[in-house]
Structure formats: structure tokens, C-alpha cells
Amino acid sequence: MTSTEWTSAAPGTGRYAEVNGLNLYYETHGAGRPLILLHGGLGSGEMFGPILPLLAERRQVILPDLQGHGRTADIDRPLDPEFMADDIAALVDHLGLDRPDVAGYSLGGGVAVRLASRYPNKVGRLVAASAYIRSDAPYPEILGQQGQVNAAAAEFMKDTPMYELYQRVAPRPEDFPRLLDKIGAAMAEDFDLTEQVRGLQVPTMIVAGDADMAPPSHFVEVFKLLDGGLRDGGWMGEGRPKGGHALAILPGITHYTMFASPLFATVALAYLDEQHA
């Protein structure tokens, strides 16, 4: 098992916001144009500890802990990314933010896509990393593993950073098996975000590792839905996707190293800053 500790030495301010019946924990780091950063499943905002200093040098980074994750206690509703998107929209309103940029990884990337689809007037730019848009996109062996995620797996996860983090920060550490049950049920749901992606009205960058949970071809397909990869870009960029969208396949990156990769932070900032130049 990896010995990685998901924690951040970066100084930040942690607060709670009451949204949709949820006591949503979030931290703020740094200063500048706001960037909401959404973590992956079974993690928390602390996952981004290794790259947070890079991001917070240039941005005010807002790190929420999604429902049932990290310091945000679970409530009596499914772990549904649609609900989580509603929670983040409510957080944007709670903080009085004007179209902050949003970046999400894995589960957080799926939440970010749904947020931008449902609330285009609440999002400036979007970066979706390692977030496949159809439930059948991952490799078959990954789908098999996802089918085994339930409370019974808790005992086998005690040496993982997911378990260590949850025990350290969760309001109710004993709820870890319940979280596994609910996230297993969520992963068993079929979904297809093709139409949501095709209809995105905010500039979006799709990011994936070259050895991610789904093949690179899937993320190229997603880019095509955004008018990308269909023609030569042209000398002046006139052939680039009409909505300002972009694609990045990062070399040497897997699904399990993306969130801690300085390359991810650099590429995300380059895209977001270019859009506001």
C-alpha cells in the first residue's frame, strides 16, 4: 500500500457553510481570483496538499469537503454527484462569488461538470481531471473493483490513505463503512453525461493521465463533444474549439497520482490564466 499522507502544510482557514441541509466544510488558501477545487471519492480537500502551495501562489483556492467526505458529515441522502453540484452552487452563493473558476478531480471532476452544466452562470472556467463521462468508460477490471466497494471492504482499507485521512478528520470516524456502502451504490449507477458535456457553455479543459482509469481515447471523445480534435487549429488558432475548450493528456500520470502532480497544477493554471489574460 502507498504510504502517502494526504495532508497539507499550507496555512488555510477552515469554516462551515449550511447548504441544502448539509454542514459543508471548506478551507480557503491564498489570494487572487477564486478557484474552487473539488476532491476525489473517499478523499477530501487535503488530497491536494502537495500542489496546494503552487495553486495558492496565484489563486484564492477554496477547498470544500463533499458530502460524507473529510470534515463534512454525511446526511440522509444518496451520494449523488447531482446533489453535490447543487451543494457547490449553494456554496458559491453563500460566499458571494462571481463566477469562480472550478477544477475537479475524479468524483470532483464529475461534480464540476454537472455544476457547470446546471449552473453555467455560476462558473467562470472549468477544469475536469480524470473524470470519465460514461459509467462504462473505465477498463473492465476497474469496473469489477468498483463493484466490490461496500462496508465489508472497510477492514481491507485500513492501510490506505483514504482510511487514515477519514479517521483523522471525519466528524464521525466510525462512519467509514457507511461511506463505502454509499459510494459503492453511487458507482453502481449508470450515467452518461454526453449531452451535458455537449451543451457546456463555459470554457472547459479536459485533463487525463496517459495511464488513467479510462483509456486516453475516451477523453479524446469527450473533447470532440466540445468541438475539439475535429480540424487543424490554424496559424492563428482560428480552428481551435469555438468555446475555448482544451485537452491535456499528461505524461507519466495515473489516476492515483493526478491530484498530487505539479504538472496538473501547472497545466490547470496555464489554461485558467490564459482565459483571463
Score class of each variant (00 low, 15 high):
160 T>M: 10
228 G>W: 03
207 V>F: 03
187 M>L: 15
169 V>T: 11
185 A>F: 08
211 A>F: 11
191 F>C: 04
108 G>Y: 01
205 M>K: 10
182 K>I: 05
218 H>V: 14
128 A>T: 12
122 K>E: 00
114 R>L: 12
228 G>V: 05
136 D>T: 10
135 S>N: 07
134 R>L: 11
121 N>A: 14
218 H>Q: 11
192 D>M: 08
205 M>A: 11
158 K>S: 08
178 R>M: 06
113 V>H: 01
125 R>N: 05
175 D>H: 07
117 S>L: 06
221 E>C: 04
158 K>N: 07
156 F>Q: 15
175 D>L: 05
220 V>Q: 07
217 S>T: 15
158 K>I: 13
181 D>M: 05
210 D>W: 14
167 Q>S: 09
215 P>R: 13
208 A>K: 01
148 Q>Y: 01
176 F>T: 01
163 Y>W: 15
147 G>P: 02
200 L>Y: 13
185 A>Q: 14
118 R>S: 03
114 R>D: 01
173 P>H: 04
131 A>N: 02
194 T>N: 04
107 L>N: 04
227 D>S: 02
136 D>I: 02
171 P>T: 11
215 P>N: 10
124 G>H: 08
159 D>G: 15
133 I>C: 10
155 E>P: 06
149 V>C: 03
193 L>V: 07
143 L>P: 01
128 A>M: 12
224 K>D: 07
132 Y>R: 09
195 E>L: 12
187 M>V: 09
218 H>L: 08
198 R>W: 08
203 P>F: 02
163 Y>K: 12
197 V>D: 01
124 G>Y: 07
184 G>S: 05
162 M>A: 15
156 F>W: 06
131 A>Y: 01
173 P>A: 06
136 D>N: 09
203 P>G: 05
145 Q>G: 08
226 L>T: 08
125 R>Q: 06
177 P>Y: 07
204 T>I: 06
183 I>V: 13
220 V>G: 02
146 Q>E: 03
182 K>V: 05
180 L>D: 03
112 A>S: 08
195 E>D: 15
214 A>H: 01
173 P>D: 05
128 A>E: 04
183 I>M: 15
181 D>N: 13
162 M>N: 14
209 G>A: 13
220 V>Y: 07
160 T>A: 09
